[in-house]
Design a protein around this nucleic acid. Structure first.
Lengths: 143, 143
DNA sequence: TATTGTTATACTCTATAACTATA
DNA sequence: TATAGTTATAGAGTATAACAATA
């Protein structure tokens, strides 16, 4: 007898994530941003990445990919890059006032989106979901 | 007093999904496929999409994007397209033996991956996770 | 006219490899 | 030599718009 043949949980996760990601992208887009820009701004504000390598790691992308985004963000007047006088190889990335303003707007959009996402779920549900997602993450990361 | 400021669940989902998706992509790549190819093969085998519009919808992509993938898959000898004699606008997509073989290999890779993903989770956990993910999906899709 | 699908084109995100500049 | 970051290039996946074929 073959196993019960239920939908693989990875597929359910992939479908949900795609739908949710698209909706989130849309919400961020309507607020003037995008997912990578939001993650970069968020990392810059919440952590204090000492260099771009750390920043790239926090966002989950490669250094060259980060440079790509930072170039666009600098051209858009959102960030500035200045060399560290103590170690001139290091570039410190800083938000401009326009960058901070966009951060605020995207944070608002993200919070609104999150409320929509939580509809019908109480704190206990969210805790459980978070725990289960962490477990999936660990199952794929470890080993 | 500001709200408890917990990590937005959408962010947790996005991070988990990215990590899991990359690992899944890798597993499918090692088996000779990719996520969109797997989704297309799976839809062809499990549903019986009457036309490409239905197939594209099942996979969650646009018609032109599906054409893009089908062109590559046809060039790779995985599928054939033939016109429906009753309605010559409609193209029926069919798996070749090579397509069926790849389907089998990817199915194996997907099952193996799913077992890895489920480590430490019992059926009850999976049920709960699935229910919660469905809820997120609905929260973003509806309205 | 409406529907099915394709072609042409382009955008976003990502990556690797080779390079520059500092140390 | 090693490290921080950039540039050049490319590839995967997606999309829209214009088109061809068929109904």
């Amino acid at each position: 007898m073959p196993p019960p043949a239920r939908t693989p949980i990875g597929l359910v996760l992939a479908r949900t994530a795609r739908t949710v990601s698209r909706a989130f992208d849309e919400a961020l887009g309507a607020a003037g941003g995008s997912l990578p820009v939001w993650l970069i701004l968020l990392s810059l504000q919440t952590r204090q990445p000492g260099n771009q390598r750390e920043l790239a790691h926090a966002v989950g992308i490669r250094g060259a990919t980060l440079t790509h985004h930072l170039n666009a963000m600098e051209a858009g007047g959102l960030v500035t890059r200045r060399r560290d006088p103590a170690n001139r190889r290091v570039h410190h990335v800083q938000l401009t006032p326009a960058g901070e303003a966009l951060f605020g707007q995207l944070a608002g959009a993200a919070m609104t989106f999150d409320q929509r996402l939580r509809a019908g779920l109480d704190d206990g549900d969210i805790d459980i979901l978070e725990r289960l997602l962490d477990r999936l993450h660990a199952n794929v990361t470890d080993e």
